[in-house]
Simulated scan of single mutants.
Amino acid sequence: QPKCGTGSIEKSVTWGLNCELADMAPYQQEMDKIQVPLYYKTRTFECPDNRRVFRSHSKDSGLVKAAVDASFPQRHDEERCLVITAVRNPLLSIPSLFFEENKARYCDGAQSEEEVLADYEKFLGHNGGPPRQVETTAHVLKEFGVRDIAGAMDRLTGRGYAFFREPAADGPWAGCELLFLQIDYDEANSNLDIGLDHAVEGISMLPLESRQEICPKAAVNYRAMIEHEIKQEHIDRFDETHPEMGVIISYYKKLRRERKE
């Protein structure tokens, strides 16, 4: 899921497994057969012990998995398939997405706070990026048999990660298990370390790089976006096409109330 620590999770896993970036071209023939494009930010890594890591932002990453499986028909029963997806408070990931898409313009911090917030408010009215900020994770959860997104979120409450092991038998994730991470569970990322280590022994989470560290001159404007209210009217509009958005925002609001008590 974009803006949910994808890059840091990728680095943590590939660094921990000593992987190297590889070419997606060997899988293109199978992708063409089932009309799967090389999705935005889809990458593959080759690792020791015949391991492979794939990273994608697309909700249709299962189709990439199907193409990969077709490229390696000689699979063994003892092979293990692990899927990792993450969630982050949309009230934080949406401004992060806006800033990422406009980094070249805003990173120098030269714009006034009013100018940035006016552009951000227009962005919130789009039907593209904002409502899709939980789309990939929600889709993957559904492919693992999860129909109750609120229930899946509640499973994160106690420890910040959860495993799901019942993918559709006729789907691309058959035989796989899913690790669901809450990327902003605590500042120390202890849940990410524990969850990743349970999934792949010896893997721990590398530090997450903050937007303020990437664009220090724009820190004030970025903070203004974080503090800018995403109104209920925005959330209602997001829900029209992506009803999981309201569910996940409600989870974070509930979590914030509980932690204040």
Rank of each mutant, 00 (worst) to 15 (best):
N89Q: 13
S58I: 02
T85S: 05
Y120S: 07
I84P: 05
T136S: 12
G145P: 13
E101M: 11
V53D: 00
V68H: 02
D170N: 05
Q111K: 15
L91Y: 11
A70G: 06
W173I: 01
F54D: 03
R55P: 01
N127P: 09
N89K: 15
C81Q: 12
Q133R: 12
L124I: 09
M153C: 07
E166S: 10
A168K: 11
H126G: 11
P172S: 07
I149W: 08
P172K: 01
V68R: 02
D108H: 13
D60N: 10
I94F: 06
A174T: 00
I84K: 03
R147Q: 15
G145K: 05
R75E: 13
G145V: 03
D148S: 13
R88Y: 08
E143A: 02
G129Y: 09
K103E: 14
H57A: 05
L178I: 03
A66D: 10
A152Y: 09
G158K: 11
L91D: 03
Q111C: 07
F163R: 01
Y120D: 09
R165M: 07
S58C: 06
G145C: 06
F72Q: 08
K122N: 15
Y106Q: 11
V116M: 13
L82I: 13
C107E: 14
S96W: 07
E177R: 12
G175W: 07
A152L: 06
D148A: 08
L179D: 07
E101A: 12
E113K: 14
L179F: 10
V53L: 01
I149S: 01
R155D: 04
E143N: 08
E177K: 07
A169T: 03
S96F: 12
R52E: 00
R52Q: 05
E114N: 15
V116Q: 13
G151H: 12
